[in-house]
Design a protein around this nucleic acid. Structure first.
Length: 584
DNA sequence: GTGGAGAAGATTTTT
DNA sequence: TCTTCTCCAC
C-alpha cells in the first residue's frame, strides 16, 4: 500500500490526484517536480486508471528519463504491475515511434558531428566555400525548431542542398525526428489511433520545449485530454533553441479547462537563496517558501584575475572537504562537523572557457573533479571508425559510412559485405573484435577493452553509439569529485555547495544574449545550492583576446544587500604594505 | 593526402 | 588570443 499522504504535501497531492483533463503544474526549483510526476504516474497505475503502456512521460534528458524510471519502479514495488510506462525524451520516443511505424523506411539517425560534415558537403556543392559549415548547421537546426520550419531567404539553398544529401543517404538529424513525427501526426487516422492507445501524456520541463515540440504536444493529446505539463517559466533558459517562457501560459489557452497547481514549498534552497534569486529574476507574484530554517547568506568575492579566482576556489574547496564545518568557516565558531564530500560541491560558470582555468587549479591541488562538457567519445577517430563499420554491417547508411572511412572505399565495401554475411554479424562481441582487428587497432587498449566489456554486458543493444555514450556517461553524481558545469548543464541538479564564478558584466549577462534569459540563468544557478553559495568575479579577464573589465555583474546589485556577505578575495593590500615598510 | 599559411570566429545544448 | 577550418601547392 502506498502512503500518498505522508509522501506528498497538499499541493503535490492535488496535482497527483487530479483527474479531470489538462493539468498545468508550476513548480519552482526544489519544490518536488519529479516527485509529483513520478507519484502521478504511480497513482494512475496503482489506482487502475491507466495501464502502464497507456502512459507516456517525456523528459528533457536521458538522464532524467533513467532517474524517473528508477523512482517509479520504487513507488510501484508493492503493486502487482508487470510492465512499465513509457519514459523517454522527445527524441528517443520519436525515433522509436518512427522505427515502429515506418519499419525499413526509417532512416539512420546521425549526430551533430556528421550533420556538420554533411553541411560542409552541401556548402561545397553550392560553391559557397567561404561559408562556415558549423554556423550553417546551427542556422538550419534553428529553422527546424519550428513547425513548419522557418527558413529565411538566405538559407534556402543550403537548407535544401543539405536535406537532399540526407535523403540520398537515408539519414535523419536529431531535429528531423521531431518534424517527421509531426508529419505522422498530420494524418487524422494516425492521430486518433494514438489518442486511444496513449491517452495519458506527461511532459517535464515544459518551459523548455521548442515551438515544434509544442506543436507535437498539441497533436499528441486531445484539447481536453489527459495531459500533465510541469515546469517553471522562471527557469526557461533555452531561448536560443526557440523555447519560450510564455509557453506555459500558452498551454492554458490551447487546451481546454486547464487546471493549474502551483508548488511553492521549496525543500532545497534556504529562504535567503530564494529571495536573492527572486531579486535577480525579477519575479512577481508567486513567492516560494522555504522549508529550511537556517540563516544563510551569499558570499561574494572579488579577485584581480582569473588565476587568483581559480586558486581561491580550489583552496576553499580543500578547506570545505577538509572537515571544517560551514558555520566555523563563516563566523569562526566551530560547531560540530558538517563533513562534506567532493561530490557535494559544484563550480558553475556561464561558458566552458571559464571552466578550464578552474580545472587547472583543481588539478594542481590534486582535487578530483569531473566536467559535464567532456567531448563526445564518438569524436575520437578510432571509436568513430569502429562505429561506422558496425553501422554499415548492420545495414544502416552503408554508402554514407563508406564515404567517410579512411582509405579505400572499395576495399571497405568488400570487407563489410564479407562481415555482413558472416555469422558474427549478429553476435555483438565477436563483431566488435572483428572490426577492431580489421582496423588494425590494438584490442588491449583500455578504451577498447572497456567497450568490449560494455558490448558483452548489453548483447541485445543494437546501436553501438548508444553503448559508447552510455558507458562514458556525462556526469556521474555518485563519483567523489567536484562537478564543473555550465549553468545550463546544472539545470535540475542540486548541490550543498555552489560556486558561481565569473559573475561579471558581459559574461553573465553575456553581452549578446537576451538579458531576461540571462537573469533566469542566474536564477537557475542560485537555486542549485542547498547550503552555501559563493559568487566570485574578477576585475580583469581576457576573453577571445580582448580585455574585459566591465566590473561585477549587475545582477549582484539586484540581490538584497542584507543577504550578501562581501569578502575580500585575498589579504587587503592597504593593510599589508605600510606595515611591511615600517617593520622591515 | 598532407602540410603550411592565412583567415575567421569565438555562448548556452538536448537527442 | 587561440583554435579550427579552408585553400592551395606539392
Amino acid at each position: 500500500m502506498i502512503d500518498w499522504h505522508s509522501a506528498l504535501n497538499p499541493a503535490q497531492l492535488e496535482a497527483v490526484f487530479y483527474r479531470a483533463g489538462p493539468l498545468l503544474v508550476v513548480a519552482g526549483p526544489g519544490t518536488g517536480k519529479t516527485r509529483v510526476l513520478t507519484y502521478r504516474i504511480g497513482y494512475l497505475i496503482d489506482a487502475g486508471i491507466a495501464r502502464p503502456d497507456q502512459i507516456l512521460a517525456i523528459t528533457f534528458t536521458n538522464q532524467a528519463a533513467r532517474e524517473m524510471s528508477g523512482r517509479i519502479s520504487k513507488i510501484l514495488e508493492s503493486s502487482e504491475v508487470d510492465s512499465r510506462p513509457g519514459i523517454a525524451t522527445f527524441h528517443g520516443w520519436a525515433l522509436g515511434l518512427l522505427k515502429k511505424r515506418l519499419g525499413r523506411e526509417a532512416r539512420l539517425l546521425i549526430d551533430e558531428m556528421d550533420a556538420i560534415g554533411i553541411c560542409r558537403d552541401a556548402v561545397r556543392d553550392l560553391g559557397l566555400s567561404l561559408a562556415r559549415a558549423q554556423g550553417i548547421y546551427r542556422r538550419i537546426s534553428q529553422a527546424k525548431q519550428y513547425w513548419p520550419p522557418r527558413i529565411d531567404k538566405g538559407l534556402e539553398a543550403v537548407y535544401h542542398a543539405y536535406h537532399l544529401i540526407l535523403k540520398e543517404y537515408g539519414l535523419w538529424d536529431y531535429d528531423d525526428l521531431i518534424l517527421e513525427v509531426l508529419r505522422l501526426f498530420e494524418d487524422e487516422k494516425f492521430r486518433a489511433e494514438f489518442h486511444t492507445e496513449v491517452p495519458f501524456v506527461l511532459i517535464d520541463e515544459f518551459q523548455d520545449v521548442s515551438p515544434a515540440q509544442y506543436c507535437l504536444v498539441k497533436a499528441m493529446v486531445k484539447r481536453d485530454g489527459d495531459i500533465t505539463v510541469i515546469g517553471d517559466p522562471n527557469q526557461s533558459i533555452y531561448g536560443f533553441r526557440g523555447a519560450d517562457p510564455g509557453s506555459m501560459q500558452q498551454f492554458s489557452i490551447d487546451f481546454k479547462g486547464v487546471k493549474t497547481v502551483i508548488l511553492d514549498t521549496a525543500y532545497r534552497s534556504p529562504q535567503a537563496f530564494l529571495d536573492a534569486a527572486k531579486g535577480v529574476a525579477r519575479i512577481k507574484g508567486i513567492c516560494l517558501k522555504s522549508k529550511r530554517r537556517h540563516i544563510h547568506r551569499l558570499e561574494i568575492r572579488s579577485f584581480k584575475g582569473p588565476g587568483a579566482e581559480a586558486k581561491w576556489v580550489a583552496r576553499t574547496i580543500e578547506q570545505i572537504v577538509g572537515g571544517l564545518s560551514f558555520d566555523s568557516l563563516n563566523n569562526g565558531t566551530a560547531r560540530g562537523s558538517n563533513l562534506r564530500g567532493l561530490s557535494d560541491v559544484a563550480v558553475l560558470f556561464r561558458f566552458r572557457a571559464l571552466g578550464t582555468q578552474i580545472a587547472k587549479a583543481l588539478a594542481s591541488q590534486g582535487i578530483p573533479f569531473q566536467r559535464a562538457d567532456d567531448p563526445d567519445p564518438l569524436a575520437q577517430e578510432e571509436l568513430c571508425s569502429i562505429w561506422r563499420v558496425w553501422e554499415a554491417v548492420k545495414g544502416r547508411g552503408i554508402q554514407y559510412h563508406l564515404k567517410r572511412m579512411p582509405g579505400n572505399d572499395d576495399l571497405w565495401h568488400k570487407r563489410i559485405q564479407d562481415l555482413r554475411s558472416s555469422p558474427e554479424a549478429s553476435d555483438g562481441p565477436r563483431l566488435l573484435s572483428s572490426i577492431i582487428e580489421m582496423l588494425g587497432l590494438d584490442p588491449n587498449r583500455p578504451v577498447l577493452r572497456a567497450l568490449q566489456r560494455t558490448v558483452e554486458r548489453y548483447p541485445e543493444e543494437d546501436s553501438l553509439a548508444v553503448l559508447i555514450r552510455t558507458e562514458s556517461d556525462i556526469l556521474d553524481l555518485n563519483i567523489e569529485a567536484v562537478s564543473l558545469l555550465s549553468i545550463h548543464a546544472a539545470k535540475g541538479l542540486e548541490f550543498p555547495v555552489v560556486f558561481m564564478i565569473g559573475c561579471e558584466d558581459g559574461i553573465i549577462p553575456w553581452k549578446e544574449a537576451d538579458p531576461d534569459e540571462e537573469r533566469r540563468l542566474f536564477y537557475v544557478g542560485l537555486t542549485r545550492a542547498s547550503e552555501k553559495i559563493y559568487l566570485t568575479h574578477v576585475r580583469c579577464r581576457r576573453l577571445f583576446g580582448q580585455e574585459m573589465d566591465a566590473g561585477p555583474s549587475p545582477f549582484i546589485s539586484d540581490i538584497p544587500e542584507g543577504l550578501l556577505v562581501r569578502a575580500q578575495g585575498h589579504r587587503p593590500k592597504r593593510a599589508r604594505k605600510p606595515r611591511q615598510g615600517r617593520l622591515f
